[in-house]
């Protein structure tokens, strides 16, 4: 097992190296000049050229790449072109809101989606099953920003139960923290609830047809025990896989929700950096995302051994 973990961690190095090189080159090939953006609309071409020089953007590409890789190997992700601030500090500032939103969303998703999926499977073909599947189609179909604006209009602007926007750190208290995350989490979780409920339903239906389920029922076990101990546990591998993918997608895919609810997280940092062609920030954020993806995939693989004793590494 340890050897497997070590191998997988070592494999992340070439992956990250390739990502780094790809991102570096793509950014330089993309139209847009950070110096022109920094200089502002009234700047003259001469002023823009001066800024290009200061930022090292007039250096040959290989020189720029070597300088960046050199700093990276020393653990320095560079300095934002705009903020005169270390990119690491920018990322640290933005990690908490994104993690908080992703965590609350995933908790909400699991609390709702798995019971719904199990119940739908148990009542396969019944009204509850049809309702759950119908809702999940709706969940897939409704764009995140439409749902976000709708919830804001009803619960924040009209009913005033929740704030329209913003984020409060957990250090400000549990309720202020949760109060601002409830609407964004509901908005973001709908699509994941739809996805995971469907996968759960399909997996549990598969398992419910197995001989050992019939045996368990024949032993006189209650429905709850049959579903939770026998059916759900054996259906867990595909569910965990999709949950893991969902978490990875959440970390990088919260940008619309962060914009609609004005949550200053990593998604918005990425979009702002892309719009501003802030190369050091984009490069760093994508590297961090890549590392998180690799790590989550590793954790999913490891979780299989706990859920299915037949799987060994």
């Amino acid at each position: 097992m340890l050897a497997f973990v070590a191998r997988r961690l070592l494999a992340t190095i070439p992956v990250l190296a390739m990502v780094a090189l790809f991102v570096f080159l793509m950014l330089r090939l993309t139209p847009g000049d950070p110096a022109a953006i920094i200089a502002g609309d009234n700047a003259t071409p001469i002023q823009i050229e001066e800024i290009r020089d200061r930022l090292g953007l007039n250096d040959p590409l290989p020189t720029q790449l070597v300088i960046w890789i050199g700093k990276l190997l020393q653990g320095d992700l560079g300095e934002s072109f705009f903020f005169k601030m270390k990119v690491t500090d920018l990322i640290i500032q933005r990690v908490e809101p994104t993690l908080a939103l992703a965590t609350t969303t995933m908790i909400l998703t699991l609390l709702v989606a798995i019971p719904l999926g199990v119940v739908a499977a148990y009542r396969q073909g019944g009204w509850l099953d049809r309702a759950v599947m119908g809702l999940s189609v709706a969940g897939f179909s409704i764009p995140v920003f439409v749902l976000g604006y709708l919830l804001i209009y009803i619960f924040a602007v009209e009913l005033k139960w929740f704030p329209v926007q913003g984020y409060k750190s957990i250090s400000a208290g549990l309720w202020p923290f949760l109060h601002r995350l409830i609407l964004p989490s509901i908005t973001l979780s709908v699509i994941y609830i739809a996805l995971i409920a469907r996968i759960t339903r399909a997996s549990v239906i598969d398992v419910l047809g197995e001989d050992y389920i019939r045996t368990a029922k024949a032993k006189g076990l209650t429905n709850r025990v049959v579903l939770v101990r026998h059916a759900l546990r054996n259906a867990a591998v595909p569910i965990v896989t999709i949950v893991g993918i969902g978490i990875a997608l959440l970390i990088g895919g919260v940008v619309v929700t962060e914009s609609v609810y004005n949550i200053p997280g990593l998604g918005r940092l990425t979009v702002d950096a892309v719009l501003g062609r802030d190369y050091p920030t984009i490069q760093a954020v994508i590297l961090v995302f890549s590392f998180v993806y690799v790590l989550i995939n590793l954790l999913i693989d490891l979780s299989y051994t706990l859920l299915d004793p037949r799987i060994r590494y």
Partner: peptide, 8 residues
């Protein structure tokens, strides 16, 4: 942002 780069 592409426009302000290209105009130079």
């Amino acid at each position: 942002q592409t426009l302000v780069s290209r105009r130079s």
